[in-house]
Amino acid sequence: MAEEAKWYVVHTYSGYENKVAQNIEKVVENRKLHDLIPEVKIPMETVTEIKGTKTVEAEKKLFPSYVLVKMVLTDDSWYIVRNTRGVTGFVGPGSKPVPLSDKEVEALGVDTGTQTVQTNIEVGDDVVMVGGSFDGMSGTVTALDLENAAADVTVSMFGRETSVTLPLTQLRKED
């Protein structure tokens, strides 16, 4: 029966996402309804913030106030989710649950964790390199590669402009 389960979006009070997910999972466990509601997820992304030379990773909710529930839509499953404390309703016309399409599920990255890097460094910024073989040298950022947490920096060496790719952790914005 779990093959028929589809992903639905549930709206919650702000800050209640974790509680709603836990409560639904608890009811499913207690009533042995795994065939009706096999999975509950809060879409998260890992955000890497680079501040100076420190790298800090944090989990952030992709869609605050929303929880994804994979379920077979029956009167029972609808009732369980709809009457969970903190749930304001399903996303759909007139609060009628509408399942997400396969394309939407894929776009949400439900089955794969997404990762993003955030930095205060931008293209065109003057930076100082810290650590590594370019320690203490200055340059200008010409390109950012957030996927790999790196930047292309133009450095003046031996009277010529040279482009080098460095990890963001080795760059500090010039004051």
Rank of each mutant, 00 (worst) to 15 (best):
K41I: 10
T114F: 04
E49L: 14
V69Q: 03
H34M: 02
T88P: 00
L100K: 06
P38W: 08
F63N: 07
E122M: 10
T112I: 10
G109I: 12
S133V: 06
L36E: 01
A107L: 13
T53D: 03
P99V: 03
D125A: 09
G94M: 11
G113K: 15
V141D: 05
V69L: 08
E147M: 13
F90G: 06
S101D: 04
A151M: 04
V72N: 04
V40E: 01
I121T: 07
D111Y: 15
S65V: 01
V141F: 10
V128F: 05
M71N: 05
K60Q: 13
V69G: 04
A143P: 03
D75G: 00
S77G: 08
D102S: 10
V128R: 12
V127M: 03
Q118S: 12
A58V: 12
K103G: 07
L73P: 02
K51H: 06
D35Q: 14
R85Q: 07
G139V: 01
G136L: 00
E59R: 15
I37F: 11
K96E: 02
K96S: 05
S77C: 09
K60M: 10
E104N: 09
T53H: 06
P93D: 00
T55G: 01
V127I: 08
F90K: 13
T88F: 01
T74A: 02
Y79T: 07
M44E: 06
T142Q: 14
D75T: 02
I42H: 09
V105E: 09
V56Q: 12
D126V: 11
V67Q: 06
P38H: 04
H34K: 10
V91M: 13
R85G: 00
P99N: 03
G124A: 04
V117E: 00
D111P: 00
V105L: 13
T48S: 12
E57V: 09
D102N: 14
P97D: 09
A150M: 15
V91L: 15
S65Y: 02
V130T: 11
I42F: 04
V40W: 04
V123I: 10
I42A: 03
W78I: 11
T114E: 09
T84N: 01
A149D: 10
D152G: 08
G52E: 03
T84K: 06
T140E: 14
R85L: 08
V128H: 01
V130E: 07
P64M: 00
V110P: 05
E45R: 14
I42Y: 04
M129D: 00
T142L: 12
P93H: 05
V67M: 05
R82K: 15
T55N: 08
H34F: 02
G139N: 09
S65Q: 09
G86R: 14
G113H: 10
V98G: 00
P43C: 08
L144R: 11
V72C: 05
V91K: 11
E45M: 11
V87N: 05
D76K: 15
E59A: 10
D76R: 14
V105T: 14
L62S: 10
D135M: 01
A143H: 11
T46R: 14
D35V: 11
T140L: 08
V123D: 03
V117C: 15
T142W: 04
A58W: 00
D135E: 02
A149K: 15
V72A: 07
L73I: 02
K103N: 10
G131V: 05
L144H: 11
T114G: 08
D75Q: 05
P43I: 09
S77I: 08
T48G: 02
